[in-house]
């Protein structure tokens, strides 16, 4: 399956403006973060890095519209002038277990009058699941389930692909294969990817830019200087990784 056969719109930019979120606790209101301002260019691959509890997933939920912010807003600008659409890949695949792979993709196309199974099959082909159209999630491995999750998100032709630690529940070999496949898809499909992770190596391997979240703010914004493809054992990779780790440990 070539990506040329799949019609796709342009990438969108993300503008996070003065964003803040508080949760009500037994001790009153507790701020997760406040006053966040981030601009992400269309077609870029940006990783949001932070420790557990730093608010990464909360920010992802706000960007995707699942959560309402306490203050500020998130804006998307589509390069082709259309309304920006989002595709979300979660930490767990979040597939309907009583539906097949095709039906899981069809489920999110409620408002797409032009949808037919050909579209779902194209995206399942794209993620290497050509022989699994009619299989149920329980018949697939964890990596294959996550591939269906990626196909589902891409099938909506999103301007922005939101990925919330999508490979953290997989074994390292499967996760590494999926990272390579994701980079291949990203280079071919022209999507803006906003990727949450707590894994520094993963962030450096994948992204153009790394945002570090901690203590309720973005405390570091690193441009990734490494050329693609990136070799994880190269001197440049290890040197940049060490620099990023040093920066990361400045907080907490």
């Amino acid at each position: 399956m070539s990506t040329e056969q799949i019609s796709h719109g342009g990438a969108s930019s993300i503008h996070i403006e003065n964003l803040g979120k508080e949760f009500e606790t037994t001790n009153g209101y507790e701020s997760v973060f406040s006053g966040l301002n981030i601009d992400i260019a269309p077609g870029s691959f940006v990783c949001l890095l932070g420790k557990s509890g730093s608010g990464k997933s909360t920010m992802m939920d706000i960007v995707s519209g699942i959560l309402e912010p306490t203050e500020g807003r998130v804006r998307f600008d589509s390069t082709d002038g259309d309304e920006a659409t989002l595709g979300h890949v979660f930490q767990s695949p979040r597939l309907l277990p009583w539906n097949t792979c095709l039906q899981n993709i069809e489920y999110v196309h409620e408002n797409n009058s032009e949808y037919d199974d050909t579209l779902a099959k194209q995206y399942l082909d794209l993620v290497g699941l050509s022989n699994h159209y009619d299989k149920y999630p329980t018949q697939l491995s964890g990596g294959q389930q996550q591939r269906v999750g990626i196909a589902r998100a891409l099938s909506t032709d999103p301007g922005v692909l939101l990925m919330d630690e999508p490979f953290s529940n997989l074994d390292e070999i499967t996760a590494d294969n999926l990272r390579e496949e994701l980079l291949d898809l990203w280079s071919r499909l022209n999507k803006t990817v906003f990727f949450v992770t707590h894994d520094m190596t993963e962030a450096i391997q994948l992204s153009d830019r790394i945002l570090m979240l901690g203590e309720g703010r973005i405390y570091a914004d690193l441009e990734n200087p490494l050329d693609r493809p990136r070799k994880l054992d190269s001197d440049e990779f290890l040197k940049f990784r060490q620099k990023a780790i040093d920066t990361f440990h400045r907080i907490g």
């Binding site: 519209g65 309907l96 489920y107 999110v108 409620e110």
Partner: peptide, 19 residues
């Protein structure tokens, strides 16, 4: 988690109930 997935893809309440 499946309900939030549905919301993130703008799946309607009616479809969420039935599917």
């Amino acid at each position: 988690d499946l309900v939030t997935m549905s919301r993130s893809f703008d799946v309607s309440r009616r479809r969420t109930i039935w599917r």
